[in-house]
């Protein structure tokens, strides 16, 4: 059998359309999954911090709800300590135990973190960044965990 009749008789139209759709959608799903892969891995690598931040946020919400009637709400500080620490945690892992402040500044700029000067100053004032002399700094791990 030849011609369009042969295509129809052998279910060719359905096979072609279905086959093309399956292949394309399979690759589209794979493409979506791998586009999210680095985000999922980042979440997994920083799971302790995100988990603690989640708990902290929950505690703050509960606290705010309980004191809402007693005190007027405060404006949120742009230099919120928890956010600052969470933002800078991946940089800590990348830089290792001790580092120069300039390295931290360059890396934070590279990662697109806002106001690196202010943020780093704030971390120093809060004794989260501790000087070891000769311009070398380290992180106060205990303080980080307490703050989170």
């Amino acid at each position: 059998m030849y011609g369009l009749g042969a295509i129809t008789a052998n279910n060719g139209w359905v096979m072609s359309v279905t086959g093309a759709l399956i292949v394309f959608s399979g690759l589209a799903v794979l493409s979506f999954v791998i586009s999210q892969l680095h985000k999922v891995l980042n979440l997994w690598e920083n799971r302790v911090y995100y988990y603690q931040k989640l708990n902290n946020n929950k505690r703050q919400t509960d606290k705010a709800e309980s004191t809402q009637e007693k005190t007027p709400s405060q404006p949120v500080s742009p230099q919120d300590m928890d956010d600052n620490i969470v933002n800078y945690m991946p940089l800590l892992e990348e830089l290792g135990e001790s580092f120069q402040l300039s390295e931290l500044y360059v890396l934070s700029q590279k990662k697109g973190l806002g106001h690196p000067h202010l943020s780093i100053t704030y971390l120093r004032q809060a004794n989260i960044l501790i000087s070891q002399g000769d311009g070398v700094f380290t992180w106060n791990q205990q303080k980080v965990i307490n703050n989170l």
């Binding site: 292949v23 394309f24 690759l27 589209a28 493409s31 791998i34 586009s35």
Partner: peptide, 8 residues
Amino acid sequence: PKLMLLGG
């Protein structure tokens, strides 16, 4: 990953 669509 968008380039994968071209492979499809």
